[in-house]
Each structure stands twice: as C-alpha cells, then as structure tokens.
Design a protein around this nucleic acid. Sequence first.
RNA 1: GCGGCCGUAGUCUAGCCUGGACUAGGACGGCAGCCUGCCACGCUGCGGACCCGGGUUCAAAUCCCGGCGGCCGCACCA
Length: 577
Amino acid sequence: MSVADKVMELAKRRGFFWISAELYGGVSGFLDFGPLGKLLKRKIEEKWRYWFVLKNQEFVVEIETPVITPYKVFEASGHVGHFTDYMVECLKCGRKFRADHVIEEQTGLSGLEGLSEEQLTSIITERNVKCPECGGQLGTVKKFNLLFQTTIGPYSENVGFARPEAAQGMFTTFNRVYNVMRNKLPLGIAQIGKVMRNEISPRQGPIRLREFTIMELELFYDPQEPSCHVLDKNEVLRLVPEDSVAKKDLTPLEVTVEEALRKRLVACEWLAYFMVLAQKFVQELGIPWDKQMFVAKLPQERAHYATQVYDQVVKLEKWGWIEVSGHAFRTDYDLRGHMASSGEDLRVYKQFQSEVEVEEVEVRPLVDAIKEDYETDASAIINALKMMPGERVLEEIKSKGFFEMGGYRIYPKHVSFEKVKKNVKGRKFIPFVAEPSFGAERLVYASMEYAYREKDGRVILSFPPDIAPIEAVVLPLVNRDGLPEKAREIYGMLSFRGLVVEYDDSGSIGRRYARADEVGVPLAITVDYQTLRDDTVTVRDRDTWKQVRVRIEKLPEIVEVYIKRRELKEPLKKLFE
RNA sequence: GCGGCCGUAGUCUAGCCUGGACUAGGACGGCAGCCUGCCACGCUGCGGACCCGGGUUCAAAUCCCGGCGGCCGCACCA
C-alpha cells in the first residue's frame, strides 16, 4: 500500500476529506472536507494569509468577489477565447488531439483561436490534415469549454461563468481598491475563494478537482519602477529555468535572487519576491526544501495572459512532481483587456515633482478600419487604444503581428503611431501585475503526506504544530478519583481561551495517545494523581513522546506559544529538549 | 470519451470462478460498561455492509444486461 493510499484511507476514516455526494455514488473532482480537514485547511489558509497578506499589510489587502461572473468579464480576460479546447479524434487509431495544434503543425496556419468547430473541421478537410500518429483520417472537431456556464437569473439569456481563477475579480475591481488604498503603488490585492474548472476527467483524488480553493494575490506596480522594496536578493531560489525545461533537463539550479534577476531567469523582482515567500510558506507546511522547486513553463504551455510562469512543484510519492502554485508575470494584459472591453480608463496617474518634457509614442486609432472590423465595439476599442502605452503596442505588433487587448486583435491597419514631445505634470500608465496563485487542497494533501509517519505500527501525523488541526488533547490518566473532573476543568479553560482542544477519556491512556497522534495533535495534557496534590500536569510531545510537568495556570500560554511557534519558540523549546 | 481492472459495515477484507446451509465471516476502529498509576492491556456487551435497476433461476453478494461511481492507461489539465 502506497503512502498516498494510506493517507487517503486515513483522510476518509478520521474525517479529513472524502469524495463528495457519496450517498449517490460520488462524483470525481469534488471533495467534502470533514471536521479535521476543514480545520487543517483553515490553518493553511491562515498561514498563507500571514505570509502573503499580513506580512506586507502596508500595501497588501484581502478582498472577496463573487464566484459567478458575467460573460463579459471572461470575454475581456481572454478566457472565452482561450479556455476552450478543440479536440479531434483520429477515426483510425482513436487518438485524440488538440485540433488547433494539429492544424498549426501541419499547415503552418496560426491564430486559430477565434474559429468555431465547423470552421476547424472544414480546414482539416480542405487542407487534408491527417492524424499525426498514424496518418489516419480525422473526425469532426468537438469543443471542450472548461468554464462552468450558467445563466444569471431564471429564464434568462444572460450567460455567466463560475470563475476559473479569482484574479479577474481583482482586476475588475482594481480601480476601486486602488482608490480606497489612497492611490498608491505597489498595491497587492489578495483573495482566498472557490474557483471552478470543468475538467474533462479529473483523477488523482484531491489533486485535480473541478471545484477548489485558490489563494491568489495580484501585485500591481509601476512598470517604470519595477524594483521590489521588500526583496532580499541574497535569498536562494531553487528553480528550473525555461531553457533547461526546453532541453528536458529538470535539475533545479540553486541561485540567489540577485543572480536569477541578473541572468533574466525570473522576469521581475516582484515575481522573485513571491517565489521566495512561496518557498518559505511551503516549507512551513512541512515540505522540505529539496522536495520542492520552481519549473518554468514553456511559451506554448503558458496561460494566455502570462509572459512568464513558474510552477512551484512538490514531490509527491504517488503522483510525482505536482504543481501547488503558479507564479505568473501577467504584465498589463488583464487591465488592458478590461479597458478595451469596458471602455473605462483603468490607468493610474502619477504626478511629477515639476513639469517635464517627455517624448513618447502615441497610438492613433484608425477609426474607419476599426469600425469596419469591430462595428458596435468600435468606440470602446478606439477609446482604449488611445490610452494604451504606445511603445508596448508598437513592440507587440512588431513581434507578434498584432496587439491583443481583451479578445480584440489590433493589426497594423487599425493604428498609426506618432512620436510626440510634450510638457507634462505627470504620467498615466497601466500597472504591471505579478501573481502568485496557490491551490489550497493540494497543499492540504501534500502537508498530510509529508506529515505521515509510522512508528511501532502506529500512525503519526507530524504536522508542524501551527497547522495541526487539533491543538491539544486533555486526558485524565484514569477515570476515577476525581481525575476526569479535573481534566474537564482544564479542557474548559483551554477551550475558553479559543484553542482547538479535545477531551478524551475512552480506553487506556496509551490508546488515547495513539488516537491523538494519528490526527497529529501536537500536545497531550495528562491529569494524574500529582495534579490533585500540586496543580501540575504533564505535557507530552507528539513526536518525541517526551513529557514535562507544568503548572496548570501556565498551561494556556504554553500551549498557545507552542502551537503558534513563530518567533516565540524559545520558552517552549526548552520543554522538549 | 475510449480501453483495462474494480464496487461487501467507519476502514481493510473473506465469500463470487463452481448460485443453495450466508441468519454474509474476520480484523481494526466506534459506542456502553468493567478494569487501568503513562504509550493501541484485558474482559463483557452493543450497533454496523453485499453501488443502483432489470433479467435468468425454485433460489443471486455470486451468473447475464443496463446504469452509476472509482482506480489505472490514452487524451485533457489554460
């Protein structure tokens, strides 16, 4: 039996998580979290919040936006266009392929994103595209849209989607939060919430889900001031850069942040900063340094919105290296898209000390050409184009042949450029975005797998004390002579302090220790006969089984300090040495 | 969606091939109680299961069909 199987069995048996709707046979891709799982997940979320929000609360804030999101938002974000996969099956060998990929490979055509199933099918027929494996004939193209779709309001034509990432909620409300945060950059907007992706066939238990919790942060900064003031460049990153991945060499480099930036392995300082935090965060979940690394995503496997992506992967016993977070450099892609679709100005204004003369490239929309191609959307596009940073538009048109903005493509025929000199008192720009994004359920599972130990045929979950679902258990040594009463009293006292505690008087003392170890309770407090004489109890450490005797009045503080650990470990450290 | 394997108490499993004595057995866990001066002690007792539907048969956990679900592989995983 693999560790994964044991963990899954334990998860089910002791109430961490299990497959949802089991009553009706279950559905893959959905999980129920039981009492312990919910506690564990909450603690992991809390730890994420510590590292990614509280630590930088001066400029990072947490918000909450809805799961159901209007069609327009995901059209603007590019998800409607890019989140749909077109599949085609070989009629001879039965293999399935991404239709657009096969066509691109065999015909050299590109820019197929906007096409329908019918159009792709007819290209296959016309250009005689064959199965790349066996040369057989291909069938008709079928669409897979990974967005969960619904209608907003009953009997309504108003299509909405369940969000596949929380990010769009942060982008669409960026200007308000920016304003509330008194117009300052850098600004981080964080969110923890449910997202949904209608995966074709989710497997691997808690690893690939159709509905899961994302912990995401969008950091907005001025592209002209890209330095991250909280970054320590001496920190070391363990990563596999893009060119190694391209060569299929997955040996991680251990480089300082300074070096990673100098060699352009990491695209921007903020991304590097969050990667450093991500390592610490994941390490604190009990996953050692050498069991995690960052792997660059190649251009073709990157999300449509990102110019650089590193996946943070951790080694799992059964499933290999599994992504637990993605670190994407999204530039101004998303805000730009929402500007084009909404026609609103999402730029940020920065005032100069004094008026200065600048020379910049301005975009001049060619109104007739845009009207011709985009009809009713033209006015929003024209408006947005005028607000786009000229250099970037020019550059992208040069390199890709078009400039993309919220599902619209701007080709050379749509714009002209003009270099202008002018005196200005400030500048308007679209912020750049660096995004770390974590999957909570995968971290829950990974922390359980790394906590899993067996000792003398007993199972112990050695969670780091600060993520253990239950913080302490109170036990009377025997069930007589007033010991249970005293133990209950202590239980009540700890519980009143807001600690997650359990009381257990069933079976022998050894059995109760074992029961607590199995779900990772870090401290066991035992009331014995000496307690009745001098108001002391024994505190047992889950991992070493060592015990120390402490005064009851000191207990709440000791337990609190121990389970919170951070920077406070000294007073308790002594106890178990 | 395709192919292979599979579905029995909370968990793990025996039984299925060869239909009937299966009132479905065991282990672990749970609960109640006794016992218990520190690592799953022992004793007594109590609950608890054949994925769903149809068929064959005198008789189905067992055979057949369909459905649902799971695991593995293919594909997919922005």
